[in-house]
Amino acid sequence: MRNAQVAEWLLSLVTTPLRAASTVGDLMENAARRGVVRFWIGVLRTAFSMMWRDVTASPARMARLAGGGFIVGLALLFVCFLPVFPIAILLSPAGFRDPSAAFNSRIFNVASMAVILLVPFQQGRWLARRSPGQELAACFALTILTAAVDSIPMALGLGTAFQLMLSIAASIPMFAGAVWVRRKRMTR
């Protein structure tokens, strides 16, 4: 079946490569009778179940990791944004004569975007290094914590569901960081 390797790769992020291969083999056997859509539903549900199992197997540890990751993220945001402001002002045509103009400049937008992508990526790496074998579960725990924190303004009528969804989507680079560490760990 096409893309079976992709499914195997996906499952190998949450279980051992041998188990991932045999699970994909089982799902392929089912797919011969039930079709490719059921195959992918099976792959995604299995991957999610395995990740969730890791979260619930040691909830206190996952909560500690999520809390640590949250603080690391805030610290990284602070450190990374510090140089962005003076650089944006320096490179702005108006310079220090009109610092507020820098915040609408392209350089500021690009730098902000880079920070927004880089910080969660580093957060994911930080979490993955501290949770060998459960890298994605730790990121998932932090995603839950972030969603809980971000839903507070929504509950107070200060935010929208779309903003909450955006903040959850912002955790994608974090998972990428965790995958990066896991792949390196597995190839060692």
Partner: peptide, 15 residues
């Protein structure tokens, strides 16, 4: 335990 890889499963072993 893992069985032998089978071609029907794309060379993937049964557990």
């Amino acid at each position: 335990r893992f069985g032998d890889p089978t071609p029907q499963r794309g060379g993937r072993a049964k557990r």
